[in-house]
Design a protein around this nucleic acid. Structure first.
Lengths: 215, 215
DNA sequence: TTGACAAACGAACATTTGTTTGATACAAAC
DNA sequence: GTTTGTATCAAACAAATGTTCGTTTGTCAA
């Protein structure tokens, strides 16, 4: 009674294992045979279900990555729906969404590794991401923030501010190996809370204050 | 009279083209044949001079990437040598070093793409980078910053602060495709100056002020 | 001339690569 | 039963992969 939505088990398994392996080793670093073996599917299953290896890669973004990213977007919509909120709520919500808005630690890691790789080597997937996720996040962020900014702040300044907030969230997620190497700390629940706290406070202190802008 | 240092032309050409191609397409995305063709060298030249493809990759980091990164380090040493400086000078110097401390735009792009890829998929090269570059930068940054921080600030807080500054510098460099897609701006001289200005002001406003720390 | 050495070369090695083809199993529809 | 469509399978394809081998070339020293 609880399994009506099982459209195509092997197709789903292929997507799962492909996402895991693509995140781990990149597109060129994984072979179709490796994927099909991990998914316990036949070698030709990839070309049968997706047409080509590259199409499978794009399908991972369309059918796995984007839906997850849209959940982050929804959090901002929920925040916006509940009436006027302070800048602290805005920054904290978006930061927490990136750090806690996933099923488990492995999923969050895969998610960020995938976009990280795509930013390394911009392809068709990055256009999808920018238009469907990044730009909407920017729009909402800006809309939520504007009421709390002094009148003198330019659009450009707001854009750069948002970049500086988002880039921290991204970095502390996909720069994990470096953060761990330099701090010696593992990404346990406690450390994640600390990071959210830090990014929020840091970004709030840096909020454009207006009046001091010249040169 | 101007070419005494030419130890091994083809070896140098291999390193040059390998760096360019590895930065562009990643380790697995480039073939030895592609590298040797670009360097106008023989196919077996890679194995002759470096032993293997992976050794060539590591040689790129050791003989190209690290020396360049050390020049950034030297800028901090010069700043430290010239006596007491304010936090604005510290942040601005390190930011400018990452944005302007390269021969040309292509070199800066390659440089950041290489480390970006290595952070994506940590390998032997990342250990080199962390120990030889990242950690020393952190140490100098901390040393230069400490005199200007209120007494209540913890070591951990300083570490996270430095991360948040550095990650902006890195992001605006290797997140270029996304920044361009969202702002529509190209990375010309004017925009780079604007970014340095933004990161500096943003980071200075966010400087830990002490006294407000609890919970 | 001879010897020694580093570099480049041509050619091949055995794997691995993504993709294609044709046959087979199996279900539901007619 | 027959047909139809979907999924899986074995097998093979041509192309590309990293690496190795033996030879040749050029250069400097004895």
């Amino acid at each position: 009674m609880t399994q009506p939505p099982q459209p195509d088990p092997t197709r789903e398994r292929l997507l799962d294992e492909a996402e895991r392996l693509f995140a781990d080793k990149g597109f060129a670093g994984v072979s179709v045979r490796e994927i099909t073996a991990a998914a316990e599917a036949h070698l030709s299953a990839v070309n049968y279900h997706f047409g080509s290896k590259r199409n499978l890669y794009l399908a991972v973004f369309r059918e796995r990555w984007l839906p997850r990213a849209r959940r982050i977007l929804e959090r901002l919509d929920q925040l916006e729906a509940q009436g006027p909120v302070g800048p602290a709520d805005v920054v904290r919500t978006i930061t927490e969404a990136f750090f806690a808005g996933f099923a488990d630690d492995a999923e969050r890691q895969r998610h960020h590794q995938l976009i990280h790789r795509e930013m390394c080597q911009p392809g068709e997937a990055l256009e999808l991401i920018v238009e469907e996720v990044t730009r909407p996040i920017f729009l909402r962020f800006r809309r939520l923030l504007l009421p709390h900014l002094p009148p003198g702040v330019s659009d450009q300044e707001v854009t750069l501010y948002i970049f500086s907030v988002i880039c921290q969230v991204l970095f502390f997620n996909f720069g994990r190996p470096m953060v761990t190497a330099l701090t010696g700390r593992t990404y346990d629940e406690q450390f994640r809370r600390l990071l959210v706290e830090h990014i929020t406070r840091f970004s709030l202190r840096a909020l454009p204050r207006g009046g001091e802008e010249d040169s």
